[in-house]
Amino acid sequence: MYDFAYHKASSVADAAAKAKGNDDAKFMAGGQTLIPTLKQRLARPSDVIDLAAIADLKSIAAGGGAVTLGAMATHASVAASADVKKAIPALAALAEGIGDPQVRNRGTVGGSVANNDPAADYPAAVLGLGATIHTDQRQIAADDFFLSVFTTALNPGELITRISFPVPEKAAYVKFPSPASRYAMIGVFVAKTAKGARVVVTGAGNGVIRIKSMEAALDKAWSAASLDGIAVSASACNGDIHGSSEYRAHLISVMAKRAVAAAG
């Protein structure tokens, strides 16, 4: 690992001030992606700004028709939260299925969403529920947030403070995990929301995508059978050593039906 200067931020304002004007600085949440990346020398930040001491980023709250997760809420704390389990069980179950217990004890929702790994789980829920990403500068709608592989609408030095997920009528997330890493080969998040059905796929290759043909079918009739015969083109999917693009495209249909069935 290349060396860097380590800083502990005491507040959101302090973190933003430390990052200001320094494009080579990186925020660190739990380090569960950043540290492996640094170990492989895939990044070389001059400064690492640790957010762990900012207590008000860790809150988890339900109310007013939404679940709001502080950026530093860990996967384990979301999975265990009685409020989240009651309001949006699919969100708690998604957090419970990330990686392994040790990764869940340290990894955070803000870090996962900011990182936008094309096979990560949380982005599927953020887009699938039409969540709002709050930063230290503005609010960003999920539909405008995920730009492409490892790329988001965040500006350099912009800090996610919390993410607010509207409570859907029903929702479910089903993933086919890679047996080695637990990341999604394909994961599908489905939700019946006040603004219509949403079907979001992660793991296809280029970051989370909505499958509008499936959404339209579910708007007509919410049932797994409504998705019969709706195929996703293999050209929308990556092929790699884990599976061909045809295989991934097929998985999307299978996982989407299972998710609708699970949502009930």
Partner: peptide, 10 residues
């Protein structure tokens, strides 16, 4: 927690 994926400084 995985001690290979934590900084001592944290």
């Amino acid at each position: 927690a995985k001690s290979c994926t934590l900084l001592a400084a944290q």
